[in-house]
Computed example of a mutant assay.
Amino acid sequence: MRMQQKPHVRGHMAVLHPMRIRAEALPLADRMFNLWTFTALMLAFAAVLIAPAFAQDATPEKRSIIAVLLEWTPTLGKGFGFNVLISIMSMAIGTILGVILGVLQVSPIRPIRAVAWLVTQFFRNSPWLVLLFYCILLIPFQIEMFGTEIPFPGWIKATIGLSLPVMAYMSEYVRGAILSIPTGQWESAETLGFTRRQIMTNVILPQTVKRVLPSWMNLYAVLTMATPLVSIIGVNDVMALTRAALSAEGRIDMLIPMYLYILSWFFIYCYPISAATRVLERKYAVNT
């Protein structure tokens, strides 16, 4: 009697692919209901805030609030784009430094691990605005290199200041993701003759991407909403331009509509990121 031979399964070793459990997604009807409910609440909230301002705008010699907002939209749009640019650059710098710092937190060398932990905790628990002020005051306005003076504008200092807390949070995300990898992954890779560096770069870090990605996206949304802090230290972002517009118009009734207008921009930009974060959390849920 001939025994049935099991088919050969091609692919990578199981050690490189841990088990994954996908959480059950919410029904489409429930998701649409939540989205429409939230949108309706936001519109109702906006109507309550902006209605008094429209009521005060009854005199014919004054331009309507909508006309004023449309007139200032190109200028405010440039400022908002500046906020987005600062957030992207801060996130890029903070991510690179955070990954390095997170790897150092799991170093087998105790002094390196202790220093990395101390740096992470210091910047993670420091107020963002205080870090911005320190960067503005401590970093010179221009740097002389090889007899050439290179200017160092305030927005670059602000980018560095915002990248420091991002670095600290990313360090914690990476450290937690690395520690969540089963120890069997390390042991199996060591039996194959991989060095610790090869194990980290080829086996461990690729698996941390799915674990870190949702938190990374959520951190970017938080960072974007924190970029208006740079206006306090003299950077001409959307908030600074909004104050300039209100001063130029000289109308008290424009205060609430103008800031609500800017708030809606941040909401439209950040809410899809938060929604995508929730989707990724369900998609990349892992059994650790």
Rank of each mutant, 00 (worst) to 15 (best):
L118I: 12
I143H: 02
P52D: 08
S90G: 02
G77A: 13
T75R: 13
Q121F: 09
M91T: 13
A46S: 08
N125I: 12
W72R: 15
L70F: 08
P108G: 09
M145C: 06
L70A: 05
A47S: 13
N125A: 11
A67N: 11
P74W: 00
G94I: 10
W117Q: 11
S126K: 02
V68A: 15
A53R: 14
S64E: 00
K78T: 14
F133H: 00
Q142L: 05
I93H: 00
I139A: 01
A58H: 12
V103F: 04
G81I: 00
L85G: 07
E144V: 14
Q121S: 14
V106Q: 05
F80W: 07
L97M: 13
G98W: 03
M145Q: 12
V106T: 15
Q56R: 14
K62C: 08
A67E: 15
L137D: 08
F123Y: 14
A116M: 10
S126C: 11
S107T: 02
F82Q: 09
L49D: 01
L85K: 14
K62P: 02
T95C: 10
T120E: 09
A53L: 01
I65H: 06
E144G: 04
R124L: 07
L76G: 02
I86H: 02
Q142M: 13
L76N: 00
C135T: 10
E144P: 03
T95E: 07
P52W: 06
G79A: 01
V103H: 04
